[in-house]
Structure formats: structure tokens, C-alpha cells
Amino acid sequence: MKPKPFDYVRAETLDEALDALARHGADARILAGGQSQVAMLNFRLIETEVLIDITRIEALDYIRIENGALEIGAATRQSDLKDWPGLAEKVPMLHAALPFIGHVQTRNRGTVCGSIAHSDPSSELPLCLAVLEGEVVLRSKRAERTLKAADFQLEMLTTARAPDEMITAVRFPLGDASAGHAFDEMNRRRGDFAIVSLAAVARQDSVRLGVGGVAGTPKVRNWSELRTGDIDEALNAFAWELGGHDDIHGTARYRRELVRRLGRQVIEEARSCRR
């Protein structure tokens, strides 16, 4: 299928992009990697008056460490982050999660910020953002603001971004040396949307577990103290709370089963790789 017509703006600087957004507001959409968005435009699930292409804004193509966080600009490709030499050490969760995202051919074009902006309930990066308590930097012509993941992710495919705002960067806190990280997901075919994805951060006694694919947004649970013998019970309670839903790839029950079973695996893995 082919997309509906739209006007195209190629922003060469951030200011140009923000100007265009200010002008068009809700009638415009930002085009970054487009690996979800263009498919949805092709299917005519999305229509837009204007597409503002930010892929050529060089100033937004960066990966840097600042104030204890890894900051990734809006034009940075997923492949570039995956291949960034310090990733395993600086943000081990992202290092674990990135290979699960689509395929090398889609990571070559898909952006980190675009995935977070799209906020697909099954996506890996929004889950990482939620479980690591990362931040999203939003800019408009009016102002810049920074939102915590929990304040940014509202619903399935829905975020707190205002119509004239765009994400300019996302920030993932650097992994602290005492924590262990693990990521896993279940899908029927490697590279597909996860039926359930899980990300765990283990410290001393505590565990923070994020789950994607079972609700509109990633859901995160903290256990300040979680003894090995209590894991199953804790996960069962969490699974029931999440509920899950049926689709052609899995039932709600199956999703809860994965939360209980893979949940235990990622928690144990995170604990085992604590430094």
C-alpha cells in the first residue's frame, strides 16, 4: 500500500524543525528513522499533513555522557548506539536490549529517540527507559522540558509530548557498578514484536523489573527486598496485576505465564551478573 499525500519539510537545523512544528502543530509529524512510522503511513493507519524530516540535523546525531547519564540525540541510529564501544560498561541494559530490536537492516535506519517517541507497548527501548528511569528531553519553540519516563509514557502509542514539541534527546542513567542487568523477551520469530519483554535491575537485595507487551505502556515493579524463595509469589502477584490481553500470538494467560517464568529468569540473571 502507498501513503496518503503529505507536505515534506527537510529540517537542516533544530531551529528549522522547531519552527516547522510551531507552524503546523498537530498537523505535523516528525520523521526520524521511520521504521514504524513509514510502515504505518504505507498502511494509511497514520495520516499527516506535514512530515518534518529530522534525519539530517547533524547536531542531533550524537551519543555522549553528561551528568551521569548517557544522552542520545534524536537523529542517532539504533545501530550506532549498539556499536558504541562503551555501551556494555556504561549502560549494560541497553547493551543487552539492542540486539532484540528488529533486525540490523531496521536498526541501521531506526533511531533511538524515534522508538521512544512511537511508544509501542512491545518495544524494547521504551521499556529500558522505564525500568532505568530515564528521561526524555522535549523542545518546542516555547521551551525545553525534561520528563521522567513515567511522566512521558501515557498510553499505548501515546506520550505527553505536546503537538509543537519534539524529542531532542533521551537520557539513560549510567549503570552503577553494584547493579546487575538483564533483558529478555519472547517472540515467535526473532526480531518480531515481543509478546512479553522483560528488563531487570538487581541491587543488593532489591529488584526492579519492567515488563513490556502486557499493557499500553511498560510496567515497572520495585521490590526493595526480594528473597529467592519469594520470587514466584511476587511475580505471580505482578502477573495478575498486569492481566495481559489476547491477540493472535498469545493469550492473556500466556502473557502472565511469561511474566512469571521469564521474570524469574531475568531476575536471576540480573542477580548473577551483579558486579
Binding site: 498502511f43 493507519l45 507497548p121 512491545s122 498510553e155 499505548m156 502509542l157 501515546t158 514484536f193 499493557a215 499500553g216 490481553h245 489476547d246 491477540d247 493472535i248 500470538h249
Partner: peptide, 12 residues
């Protein structure tokens, strides 16, 4: 196309 999200979308 969107079967994966229908259930959630109806709720939304």
C-alpha cells in the same frame, strides 16, 4: 494489521 494492539486500543 493492528491485531496485536486491538484489545488495548479498544480499551483506550
Amino acid at each position: 494489521i493492528g491485531g496485536r494492539m486491538l484489545d488495548g486500543a479498544a480499551g483506550v
